[in-house]
Structure formats: structure tokens, C-alpha cells
Nucleic acid binder design. Structure first.
Lengths: 187, 187
DNA sequence: GTCTATAGGGCGATAGAC
DNA sequence: GTCTATCGCCCTATAGAC
């Protein structure tokens, strides 16, 4: 056993979610989070670039899930089909996490804080751009790739909001599919 | 002549754009901006909530332009048509500003700074949500309204990127129309 | 780990317009 | 006198530098 307990990153992320929920994001200082995790403030900034980033630790996995599924889509799938497959796959990951109400608690914290919404939108936008590039790698025209990726992203985002904010009977992947169908139904 | 010159807000916004371009957003302190505008740091924060917000002074006008045009769309227009009309109208405003290369200078500053991109995405997202509500006011189903608004917003965003970043011969409203057409063409 | 600059909020004082 | 814009000086927390 070393001088410090392992898993500082996980303890910091856990402490942050709890404190951001109560007493709240703005009421919580980085020092509070560090203290609860049993490390110093400096250690927090070693793991996370800023106070917001601690809520987005899983976002790389999400992005990779989207990109992998896009690359794995059938070669004859349309741009929108491939993009949809990407976000549906990632929706499955989110839904099947060990702690089933973690995404909802996290979403509630973000919904209550504009500065966290900003970060979330930037992360999603990054995923959208990466998805567009993945579609281009499949031979899709650049402008069509961007439009298809953004449309699928919008469907995902709306699906996620429906999923967390209500007693929707549908699962997240099904809600994503519904969003895609509604894009196709636009006239 | 009073103790202070009028138009502090405009001077602050002008000074900020210049300094954010050179020496750069991160290299510029609020004190620098205030000094150039001939006021104190404290006055800057009276006009703008934070260092980023000074770049988004016109965003309310943009939003109002979108909403007004949506409300003015023909009663029999589809949800996507009405949303498209909103963003096309706002695109016209942007293109026909007094200083023709202001939008490009501003876009260059934002493109160089992730924290400004975050704010831009939040502003756009707010416009998207407001547009969805405006569509609902026209009798559109809530989910369809969100999807149509997000799709039109995505078309606008892509159009704007094409417009600023290249030697596109098309004007901004035409690029928005092209984006909408490409959404309709998705299969 | 320590030190420091900057963001950004609180609050009372002040100078002008009316 | 009131109202409003600005200022000055206080403070803490973030986040980067050393």
C-alpha cells in the first residue's frame, strides 16, 4: 500500500457529482471536492483541466462509441443511416451503465448550470464534427457528411432530453431511432 | 461635457474585438479592454456578465430576427419551411451589416478560442430552443418543432461556416437554403 | 507543493443629469 | 432633492506559472 490511496481520479469525479448536486455547482469550490476526495486542490487540476471538465470524464468513450459504430455500418448504408447507427450504439452504452440513474443525476446538474451546458454543447459539437469526418472516411461528400452528422446529433440530443426528463416508456436507443425517423419525415 | 463620455458599452465592445484579435483573447485582460475604452474594469462588468459575453452583444437581435420571421411565415408552411424562413431572414441581417467583414473577424476570434466556442454554441442553442417554441406557437407538435428547429439551426451553422471560411460565391441566405435542401435530400 | 495573476462579485462613495 | 452611471476598494476562487 502506497503513500496515497489509488483511484484519486474516480474519487474526485464522485465527490464532484455529489457536491454539484448539493449544495450546487456554484456553491462548491474545487477545494471542497479535493477535501472530500482526500487530495489537495492541486491534484484536482492535475486530473481535470478545470472545474467543469470533471463532469465529462466519460465523453471520450462516448465519442469512440459513435465513431466505431459509424465505421462498422454496412458499406451501402446512407450517410444518415451510418450516423444514426453511431448515435444509437452510443445511446445503448449510456443506457446500460452500471449505475442506472447516474446519467439522470448528471443531466440534472448540467441543466441547472449554464456554464456546464456550454461545456456539454462543446463536447457534443466535437462528437458531431468527428462523426462528420468518419462519414467522409466512408466516402460521403463533406457537406452531406456534416449535415447528416448534425442531424443525427440533434436527434440524439432531443432523444436524451426526452429520456431523462420524463417518464418515457421508450429506451434511449429507440428514442434516437424515433428522432431520426422524424428527420426523414420533415417536409 | 460630462464626467464620462457616452457610449461606454459600444467602446468596450469595439476595444474587445480589436484586442481579442491582437494580441488575442487569452492575452487580453478585462483591464486592458477597460483602459482602451476609457473606463474602469468595474464598468466592464456592469455592461457584460463576463469576459466572453462582450462578443455576443448582437445575439438578441439575431434571435429576434429568427423568431419574427418564423411568426411571419405563411400559415400553411411546413415546420421546416417556417424554421428555414427564420434562419434565412437572420442570415440576411448578418450579411447586410454596415461593416461587411465584422462577422468574419468575429468568427476568426471565436474559432481560435474553445471557451468562446462554448459560449457561441450556448447562444445558438438558445436560439434553437426559442425557434422550437415559436413553431409550437404555430401549432406544430412539440417534438416535431424541436427537430425542425434543430435541423434548421444545423443548416444555418454549416452555412455560416462555409460563408466565413472560404471563397464561397454564394451569399449566406443562399447557403442556408442549400443546407435546408440537403436536409430534405437525406435518405 | 507554493505563489500569483485574473475573473468576477459586493458594496458604498461620488459625479453628473434632471 | 432623485436617479443613474461610474469608480474604488474590498474580497474569494480559479487556474496557470514556477
Amino acid at each position: 500500500m502506497g503513500r496515497w490511496e489509488p483511484g484519486a481520479r474516480e474519487r474526485l469525479a464522485g465527490a464532484a457529482i455529489e457536491l454539484y448536486g448539493d449544495p450546487g455547482y456554484e456553491q462548491t469550490t474545487v477545494a471542497d471536492i479535493a477535501a472530500r476526495a482526500g487530495v489537495t486542490e492541486r491534484t484536482f487540476f492535475r486530473y481535470f483541466a478545470d472545474k467543469r471538465e470533471v463532469l465529462f470524464a466519460g465523453s471520450d468513450l462516448f465519442k469512440e462509441g459513435v465513431l466505431t459504430a459509424i465505421a462498422a455500418a454496412p458499406a451501402d448504408a446512407s450517410a444518415l443511416d451510418a450516423a444514426a447507427a453511431g448515435f444509437e450504439a452510443a445511446a445503448g452504452f449510456i443506457q446500460n451503465q452500471p449505475d442506472p440513474d447516474f446519467p439522470r443525476r448528471r443531466a440534472a446538474v448540467i441543466a441547472a448550470n449554464p456554464s456546464l451546458q456550454e461545456r456539454e454543447l462543446l463536447k457534443l459539437s466535437t462528437v458531431g464534427s468527428a462523426a462528420a469526418r468518419a462519414l467522409q472516411d466512408r466516402g460521403v461528400d463533406p457537406v452531406e457528411a456534416s449535415i447528416a452528422a448534425q442531424a443525427a446529433l440533434a436527434a440524439f440530443h432531443l432523444a436524451f432530453e426526452r429520456w431523462v426528463s420524463s417518464d418515457e416508456p421508450l429506451g434511449l436507443p429507440a428514442l434516437v431511432r424515433d428522432g431520426i425517423a422524424r428527420i426523414r419525415a420533415l417536409r
